[in-house]
């Protein structure tokens, strides 16, 4: 297996007439902790959704998304077998997306559904080993006492940690987190980011996390990919994402006009810093 875990090539996405991603490309190596930053509407969520096939790229482009040497989508079509491949990638949402009426335990267990045999997934029968695994996952995020509480009674921070436990249950090698702390208070946010960091360091799982707060990115990640108007504006070690570059990154963000950037020279390749 090569060191590259995620490879994105020539990814373009247009919703209606507005280009949201334009020729995005990068590679991420196994075990990296990458922050995805950029102003609101720059296409961070859209990019992450492409990596698990929740969104398909434009047809007739030369796009390709490869995860762990397996093609997920190519030229805007999902690859065959991409469903099975998806269970190797865990996804964490800003809105947690737990099934509110089910217990915490069940919410963790259903992370396993994608890799279970078809008939067992259908009737939802989990083995004792899977129950044990779910408990261990909950223990790792520090919530084992809440296993039997209903998910919609938890606090936001607890919900997000249950979502992390669900990803652990999946035994995913890659964890994609789309603004996992955007709706959390600072303390819960730290807890969630600490948990993600621990998982990365202890298990070597690759983590890509989109963040609004650059401070968190600096504290928790080694590398940053910055998107602006759907293009890669910066890709390199986080300490080279200097304040000046950040100022350019977030300048004019509200105008939301991909073609009329006041800083056209922020050509994507110009700022690609060698890792």
């Amino acid at each position: 297996m090569s060191l590259t875990t995620i490879a994105v090539e020539h990814l373009s996405k247009t919703f209606g007439h507005s280009p949201v991603l334009q020729d995005v490309g990068f590679e991420i190596r196994a075990g990296e902790r990458v922050a995805l930053v950029g102003p609101s509407g720059s296409g961070k969520s859209t990019l992450l959704r492409h990596l698990v096939g929740l969104t398909k790229a434009n047809r007739h482009s030369d796009s390709r998304v490869t995860v762990m040497d397996r093609c997920i989508q190519r030229r805007g079509r999902l690859a065959r077998g991409s469903r099975a491949q998806r269970c190797r990638t865990g996804y964490i949402f800003q809105q947690f997306n737990l099934v509110g009426r089910l217990s915490v335990m069940t919410n963790v267990l259903i992370g396993r559904l994608g890799c279970m045999p078809r008939w067992r997934a259908l009737i939802g029968r989990f083995t004792p080993e899977e129950h044990e695994m779910a408990l261990r996952s909950l223990k790792r995020v520090g919530l084992e006492e809440l296993a039997h509480q209903r998910a919609n009674t938890l606090s936001g921070g607890q919900m997000q940690r249950v979502a992390i436990a669900r990803v652990l249950m999946q035994d995913a090698d890659i964890i994609l987190a789309d603004e996992p702390i955007a709706s959390l208070d600072p303390r819960s946010a730290r807890e969630v980011m600490d948990t993600l960091q621990r998982i990365n360091e202890e298990d070597g799982r690759t983590i890509v996390v989109s963040l609004h707060q650059v401070d968190y990115a600096r504290d928790y990640c080694q590398r940053a990919i910055a998107l602006k108007h759907g293009q890669v504006y910066f890709d390199g070690p986080i300490d080279q994402l200097t304040d000046i570059r950040l100022a350019y990154l977030y300048a004019n963000a509200e105008l939301d006009k991909p073609h009329e950037s006041r800083f056209p020279a922020s050509a994507p390749t110009a700022l690609r810093v060698a890792g």
Binding site: R83, C87, Y91, G124
Partner: peptide, 19 residues
């Protein structure tokens, strides 16, 4: 969102309906 959460982990259609 709950549907997408299960889809993103590779869950099959019928199991998504179920859970």
């Amino acid at each position: 969102g709950q549907v997408e959460a299960l889809r993103s982990s590779g869950t099959r259609y019928v199991a998504v309906l179920q859970f």
